[in-house]
């Protein structure tokens, strides 16, 4: 048996935090009588009443959890704490856009593909982006993951013999990051 994943099931990625509810809901709908005059008990899985910021934090944490098996040990828990602090109700500016799912997705893809073993500092710029920063002495790398799903970056890289190099790159697909960073020997940031 061979298949191509068409992303049809479940109809979207497993809903964070209640994957089992999602799966049950799918099969319950299959069991319902389509020809019935009454669509009885069309109930959704129970959900918790949360503020939009809390809801988005749960979304972010669950997205991190979903890729945690592809990250180093302890990485996901640390990231989830960082986002919990960043998105604290008391600290969050109410005028800021919530973190975009595209930006978050690009951030997570980049973490997995770069095989980063050191967690970045994280932030947001108020338009829904995720900013990740790695600093090792004079070597600095800041990547901004945008709501478009692309990533732009600026860096300072100090090699032993030369003046520190500075570079900036316009938005690119996150899967291009490894190739773009390779000449700068990015292990200095990612290996910690």
């Amino acid at each position: 048996m061979t298949f191509v994943d068409t992303m049809n099931f479940p109809r979207s990625p497993l809903m964070p935090g209640r994957a089992f509810d999602r799966i049950d809901g799918f099969f319950n709908r299959l069991e319902r009588s389509v020809g019935s005059q009454y669509l009885d008990e069309e109930t959704d899985p129970a959900t918790a009443a949360r503020s939009p910021l809390e809801e988005r934090l749960r979304f972010v944490q669950d997205a991190i959890s979903d890729v945690s098996m592809h990250l180093p040990s302890g990485f996901a828990h640390g990231l989830n704490r960082q986002f919990a602090n960043l998105m604290d109700e008391d600290a969050w500016e109410s005028s800021d856009e919530l973190i975009s799912s595209n930006a978050l997705s690009a951030f997570l893809v980049a973490l997995v593909l770069t095989k980063a073993r050191k967690r970045p500092g994280i932030g947001t710029n108020g338009i829904g982006s995720v900013t990740a920063a790695w600093t090792e002495g004079p070597n600095r790398l800041t990547i901004e993951f945008l709501p478009s799903g692309k990533a732009s970056l600026v860096l300072t890289r100090a090699f032993e013999t030369d003046e520190p190099e500075r570079a900036a790159f316009a938005p690119m697909r996150p899967d291009r990051l490894c190739a773009v960073l390779a000449p700068f020997e990015p292990e200095v940031w990612f290996d910690g």
Binding site: S12, L14, I23
Partner: peptide, 29 residues
């Protein structure tokens, strides 16, 4: 192109059953 299957049946142990779902799903990357 798409596959979902759910099976519910008893185990060999009295009173213990299981539901097994195998399906394609969206990849995380």
């Amino acid at each position: 192109e798409e596959f979902q299957m759910r099976v519910v049946k008893p185990t060999e142990k009295a009173g213990i059953h299981y539901a097994l779902v195998l399906a394609t799903t969206a990849p995380p990357m």
